[in-house]
């Protein structure tokens, strides 16, 4: 079942159209990586899902309920983590989370235990320190705590890792991955390795529509472009090998790159035997899998 559905959603700012009939759905329980170049409309899409931005045409359904601009009903099942969360610096995390919990209508007894639980989960101190002294990473973690406070069915994260250092990023991704199955997660990013690491499904936003929307495995199959990379001891060897191996190749310095189809072992055997005949011995030989980056380039440049 889909927890989030977008039907033919369009949006423009003045003359500039941002989304042209965006249409996709996110199945419950999945982790959805929302990928696209900067300024392509990821944040706008997310804000529309949250009811923070007007929808020009089309409709958005969360848990089968329609989202309206400025409406709060759907928002209570959604948690949101903005790219750079801003807080009231004069509050302590407990005070801020209490305010958040009350707004979402949480029971006050439950709220207390949830706040303690969440602060432990994101590893923030449970004391009287006020937020204005927090580092970027601590603010991001507080952001997760507030987003997950009322155990939302759907968690929306806008570029959550872009402001974090490599360690913080890794911790954050682990935290998201640990929610798999419990909460549906939609997160936008332009860091493709993040998506490869935790996402079940990938949506690529380009030119105002979703150019691809599938599981990572299916996308790889669909856009499969496997390559073999051979490295030689010298540039001359590489050039010679190029002649031997025929047309479907690129030569870059000491490297020869071949696109192939079919099984790796079969192709490799043919290549190696023909090179051996000419006494050309590669120093290394690698089969390269299709990466999300390849798919992304393929989709956005076509």
């Amino acid at each position: 079942m889909a927890i989030l559905e977008l039907h033919d959603v369009s949006k423009h700012f003045g003359d500039k159209s941002v989304l042209n009939g965006l249409d996709f759905s996110v199945p419950e329980g999945s982790i959805f990586g929302f990928v696209g170049e900067n300024g392509v409309g990821k944040t706008t899409t997310m804000k529309m899902i949250l009811g923070l931005e007007t929808i020009y045409s089309g409709s958005i359904l969360i848990d089968e309920k329609q989202v309206h601009y400025g409406d709060s009903i759907a928002n209570k099942v959604v948690g949101y983590l903005p790219d750079v969360p801003e807080y009231y610096g004069y509050m302590t995390p407990i005070e801020y989370l209490t305010l958040c919990g009350r707004i979402t209508g949480m029971d006050s007894g439950l709220l207390k235990t949830r706040i303690n639980e969440m602060l432990k989960t994101v590893d923030l101190p449970i004391d009287k320190h006020r937020i204005h002294g927090f580092s970027r990473g601590m603010k991001q973690r507080l952001g997760i705590a507030q987003a997950l406070l009322n155990e939302p069915k759907l968690l929306i994260c806008d570029e959550p890792t872009s402001a974090l250092d490599p360690i913080g990023r890794s911790e954050f991704l682990n935290l998201l991955a640990s929610l798999r199955g419990k909460t549906t997660i939609v997160f936008s990013t332009h860091i493709l390795t993040d998506v490869e690491r935790i996402a079940d499904r990938v949506g690529i936003l380009h030119d105002g529509v979703l150019k691809a929307n599938d599981s990572l495995a299916n996308l790889k199959q669909q856009f499969a472009k496997p390559q073999i990379v051979l490295t030689f001891a010298s540039k001359d060897d590489a050039t010679q090998a190029g002649i031997v191996l025929g047309n479907n190749i690129q030569i870059a310095d000491k490297k020869v790159i071949l696109n192939y189809t079919g099984k790796f072992e079969t192709v490799a055997e043919v290549i190696l035997s023909s090179l051996l005949k000419e006494h050309l011995i590669p120093t290394s030989m690698n089969g390269q899998d299709t990466t999300l980056e390849d798919i992304f380039m393929e989709v956005t440049t076509s």
């Binding site: 949250l50 009811g51 923070l52 400025g70 709060s72 009903i73 928002n75 209570k76 959604v78 949101y80 903005p82 750079v84 969360p85 801003e86 807080y87 009231y88 305010l99 958040c100 707004i103 979402t104 209508g105 507030q146």
Partner: peptide, 15 residues
Amino acid sequence: SRGTLVNLVAKGLPR
């Protein structure tokens, strides 16, 4: 200008 309302409005705080 600071963006402190985004979070709370997203949580259902009426304007």
